[in-house]
Design a protein around this nucleic acid. Sequence first.
DNA 1: TTGAAAGCGCTAACAA
DNA 2: TTGTTAGCGCTTTCAA
Lengths: 323, 323
Amino acid sequence: MITMTEIAKLTGVSQPTVSRVLSGNRKVDPGIRERVLACAREHDYQPNVLAKGLQGRKTMLLGVLVTDISNGFFADLVKRIEMEARKHGYSILLFNSDYNPDNEQEYLSVVRRYRVDGALVVPIRETSAKWNGYVKRLDVPVITVTRRAEGLDSIYVDQAQAGAMVADYLAGRGYGRFLFIGRDCDGKYAGFRQALEAKGFGDRISNTVYQDGDRLRQTLREWFRSGWGRAAVFAGNDIYALRVLDALRSLGLSVPGNVGVIGFDDSDMGSCLNPRLTSVSQPLDEMARRAVERVLERVERPEPQEAAWDVPLSASLVIREST
Amino acid sequence: MITMTEIAKLTGVSQPTVSRVLSGNRKVDPGIRERVLACAREHDYQPNVLAKGLQGRKTMLLGVLVTDISNGFFADLVKRIEMEARKHGYSILLFNSDYNPDNEQEYLSVVRRYRVDGALVVPIRETSAKWNGYVKRLDVPVITVTRRAEGLDSIYVDQAQAGAMVADYLAGRGYGRFLFIGRDCDGKYAGFRQALEAKGFGDRISNTVYQDGDRLRQTLREWFRSGWGRAAVFAGNDIYALRVLDALRSLGLSVPGNVGVIGFDDSDMGSCLNPRLTSVSQPLDEMARRAVERVLERVERPEPQEAAWDVPLSASLVIREST
DNA sequence: TTGAAAGCGCTAACAA
DNA sequence: TTGTTAGCGCTTTCAA
């Protein structure tokens, strides 16, 4: 691949002059300019981003670390981040932690090796002190997306509020028994639980971590049989919800007749499921756009002592047939 | 971030010696070795991949260009490619063409700017001469994944064979009218059509490009009314299939009672849909693994004149409830 | 076994 | 306006 030095030789000027022409920010004699540009075009010159980066300027690289790219929600998030970054001339280096903390930690190091200009991270859990330490060491702007991180820029949906919203909605629809599928440390479960307790449903709430196939069916059956009142399942994400629908169907329970089901993330498929899935929608586009903008802002003009950015967004409810 | 030169100063040796210690491939006095390693560990040294790359060696970067990362199939593909690349110490630079040829072309240039060691590409269409030209100019090993490209390494599922397999299966199940959802230039449609023609169903095949909501419903209704014989829809991918199921349901047609539906890609959700979706499964894992291995093999020892690699894999049928 | 010197491709001083 | 020089962090000669 042709370099500036080679173009310089071919056109009989100095290499820095070529640089001046190609970066376009300095005055150069029009004659030379044309010659250089013609030569560059002819040989399909492509600047070496690595050399620029090494030279101390930006690498035009953004690290993007997510938990599971094969989850439609994160796939969508990455897609939007990529689009937004590209719009500003940045490319993204993709890392998939696969919910493995060892990977997460390692990738945080790898990100540094590439001297990325900034990073967008979906941490595995609400952030620990240890994790915070790793991130600080990155010494590039970092923003956590979809989760809040103490002392770091973060943009996320307020999970507790989203959970409370689900609780209000379900209670308003006349449901009186609730099962949450997901971890009990999940913020949306906390909000969900708290709102239900305030309504006097404190003893009508169960939760179970997500399990596969048969076990999920078992759990659902036992839960359904073991109480009374209209039953509703709140799934931690739409994938869980899909599995719940499937399990309920194989138990012969109709949705929403016997059991209501509500998902989380409002993934595209939800609107086509049978029954169509009620779900909580996160402003994905806004998160991606603002996260990238924020990181790039910090890249362009680093103000070390600026306060961390803490942007909780509101989720919204998309009501369909399953509740 | 600490550099080799700084470590050299701190430990009182020359910078190349530090390099020798940290790259580990040359003999160094054990005393020095320990001192240098200790210092590197203490300051959390991370090699500058850019400098290594610039110096003429590898960048440890692989470009991955897909058509749509938000499609679960490609998300999964990217995930596996990332895992496999990481296993070999490579990171991936992600590009999403969004089915826009302009993007595809531009990103092929951007890939060069980063001096990636190789690229894995899902081209938008079966490859044109123009596209081939761009790819050649990359002058790094390129492999096309999921599509065949003349004169380039490619690993893919033989679409025509997959289409024929679907035709055989549907005909064997007693279906006698067929609608393909997707482009007529799609290889699987060609194979599907040809196999059906061979069975004398030549005049019982229709096709339509994918359309949204109402239009899809319209199309399906008209097609369903306009003929006789057991009807089956072959959707170009599982997302289309999901929409078809939804549209049929809103038309009051039961699946598989009135219409059979078969998808393509065997995405995870298929096994939980209502009804569970029959689909064509591609060996995703094998494709990702072999594609990365092949590219890296070419990176490690470039043999310019070696013949292009052409690996058609076989798809398999996953039969569920929808047919 | 170690150090000195060169150079990858580029930008940013500084001089002319 | 242009060229000269230096240097980013590293690997690779070549000497010692």
